[in-house]
Design a protein around this nucleic acid. Structure first.
Length: 566
RNA sequence: GCGCGAGUAGUCUAGUGGUAGGACAACGGCUUUCCGAGCCGUUAACCCGGGUUCGAAUCCCGGCUCGCGCACCA
């Protein structure tokens, strides 16, 4: 691989943030081209994960109130208790270190770690003593509102915003599973040591789809599409499989069809975006690697100069999130699933008689009534035994009626499971750039060319007057304007020799250059030059828009559209 | 956060205590200019702060950033 970072900076793909103030690790600025590329990636992602699924996109705040992250588990599992050696300055996660040295499973609290350290006189490997344990939270905290305000955090993932809106969303989808909800946006993690350029950022771009399904139906209607598709799979035992996704499900390597579907879909998407198939693999998380919420998880990994890097995580989060938010918010986040055939069942119900309960139990009567309603045991000697506020009571039949009838049950309430494909857009953008950047030789001279997929290029068309004077300039302006009006990202460039300009656009990945030459003024034709082959065709000015459109949407050969030129 | 190395125009780089140089790029001009042509001209840099010194890009300290290793990576 040629050194790409130099080009990315110089040509306006990626810049260090806060550069004139010395910079700050973990943040990146997208220059004009980088931003364009990432936007195109987002557009393609929507095609794959929203428009062509039963899915919608929403947008929720990047700041979350504390309650959200207590419920989600991030407040505790995202906080590490860290211990630092006084002598050598090494920092460990307290729970890891204690478990390794003493074999004790610890709670993740400062007090507990502190107690264990002093009780067992735990020392650093260098022999030094540890300072008092401290919390290190990987979430950025903030205060909402004036004064002491309310505690808030910058979201560490976009997903929580979706879970919180679950009731509204289920309603939007008319209570019918499966459905998907996605969010594209920024997320924040206060990394201890961000490194490797765009690979580990403190503020990054996610595209997440939460696909809600019936726990017993982890299938997808379009799985057929990927059943015979194969991609390199590495399971949690580090074993490699080169089998179809259908087989992988049959053999139990992938837990279920729905995960396999998203693996297939993700692979197709990444390849369409410009990731090389031979530099793409899916790796299953090992048992100790999975997040607190995940039941099974497969990462898409792309091979880059940093080695294999995770670009997508596809997790079966089970009902973890909805159940937790259910508990903490006390909102019912289940969904009603009707049976195919309603079921008739006999029910026996105890109906409290308030007119007799009231006078006898007074303030307690409401609680007694509830206990009677919930009673499900037998009646002995016309009495039932219930417990109210720790007190055992015998209630005789003058306080309740028994209603026995046949009821029709139409369905049941269940908490859906969620399958989450979560995409790191920054990493994907970077991997695409690396996978696309090549050098080749044209006319004996080395050329740097960014072979982006045509539909991904931030600058799609460059209009180049052969000569930098009239009438070439006006004609170029006229054609560039027409192409812009047609919706193509177009640049006009008359600076330097024509060869120099071709190189300029090769380097940033512009797939096609339109050249206005002498012949243009004789027969109203222009040339289209293909970035990858440097071949040219000559076409009529009137057909230009339609040909460009077809070329940009496909990988069709330029020669199909006109007479080769030169 | 620890250790090692590095930081000079947009980019790459020379300069090791005494006037900061080059290449490429960019910009303007000349040249009927289809694959980084040539010529003339222009713009443009010592990461930040402190110290030592008559004098610091250079030596020392601290910070920031980048690279590598360790640790961390829900």
């Amino acid at each position: 691989m040629a050194d790409i970072t130099e080009m990315l900076i110089r040509r306006g793909y990626l810049w260090q943030s806060f550069e004139i103030y010395g910079g700050m690790a973990g943040f990146v600025d997208y220059g004009p081209l980088g931003n364009g590329l990432r936007r195109n990636l987002e557009r393609l992602w929507r095609e794959y994960f929203v428009i062509n699924e039963r899915a919608v996109e929403i947008d929720t705040p990047t700041i979350g109130i504390e309650e959200v992250f207590i419920a989600s588990g991030h407040a505790s599992s995202f906080t590490d208790v860290a211990i630092e050696c006084e002598r050598c300055g090494k920092i460990y996660r307290a729970d890891h270190y204690i478990k390794e040295k003493l074999g004790i499973e610890t709670e993740e609290t400062i007090d507990f770690a502190s107690e264990v350290l002093s009780t067992y006189d735990v020392r650093c490997e260098c022999g030094g003593k540890f300072k008092e344990p401290e919390n290190f939270n990987l979430m950025f905290s903030t205060k909402i509102g004036p004064g002491r305000g309310k505690d808030g955090y910058l979201r560490p993932e976009t997903a929580q915003g979706i879970f919180i809106d679950f009731k509204r969303l289920a309603d939007y989808f008319r209570e019918k599973l499966p459905f998907g909800v996605c969010q594209i946006g920024r997320a924040y993690r206060n990394e201890i040591s961000p490194r490797q350029g765009v690979i580990r950022l403190r503020e990054f771009n996610q595209a997440e789809l939460e696909y809600f399904v019936h726990p017993g139906e982890k299938k997808h209607p379009n799985f057929q599409q990927y059943k015979d598709f194969s991609i390199k799979l590495v399971d949690k035992m580090d074993e490699e499989h080169n089998i179809s996704l259908g087989e992988a499900v049959e053999k139990g390597i992938i837990a279920h069809e729905l995960l396999a579907y998203f693996i297939g879909r993700t692979a197709e998407f990444l390849i369409k975006a410009g990731i090389k198939k031979d530099k793409l693999r899916f790796r299953q998380h090992k048992d100790d690697e999975r997040a607190h919420y995940a039941e099974d998880c497969w990462d898409a990994e792309a091979y880059t100069s940093y080695g294999w890097i995770e670009v997508v995580g596809i997790a079966d989060r089970g009902d973890y999130d909805l159940t937790r938010h259910n508990q903490y918010s006390r909102e019912d986040l289940s969904i009603f699933i009707p049976y195919v055939e309603p079921v008739k069942i006999k029910v026996k119900r105890f109906v409290p008689k308030m007119s007799s309960l009231g006078p006898k139990f007074r303030k307690k009567s409401k609680k007694v009534a509830e206990a009677i309603e919930n009673y499900s045991g037998e009646i002995s000697d016309g009495k039932i035994k219930i417990e109210v506020e720790g007190e055992n009571l015998e209630i005789d039949s003058s306080f309740f009626d028994i209603e026995e009838k046949e009821e029709t049950v139409y369905g049941e309430r269940i908490v859906p499971h969620v399958i989450e494909p979560s995409f790191g857009l920054d990493r994907i953008t970077y991997a695409i750039l690396e996978h696309s950047f090549e050098t080749d030789v044209v006319d004996g001279e080395e050329r740097r060319v960014l072979r982006l997929k045509r539909w991904m290029a931030p600058v799609q068309i460059a209009v180049l007057p052969l000569l930098s004077r009239e009438p070439f300039l006006s004609k170029s302006d006229e054609i560039a304007l027409k192409l812009k009006e047609a919706g193509f990202y177009t640049e006009k460039d008359d600076s330097g020799s024509i060869g120099r300009r071709y190189r300029r656009y090769d380097e940033i990945g512009t797939p096609f250059c339109i050249t206005i030459d002498h012949q243009t003024f004789e027969d109203s034709t222009v040339t289209i030059r293909d970035r990858d082959t440097t071949g040219q065709i000559r076409v009529n000015e009137e057909e230009l828009e339609s040909i460009i459109k077809q070329l940009l949407e496909s990988e069709r050969d330029l020669k199909e559209f006109g007479v080769p030129f030169k």
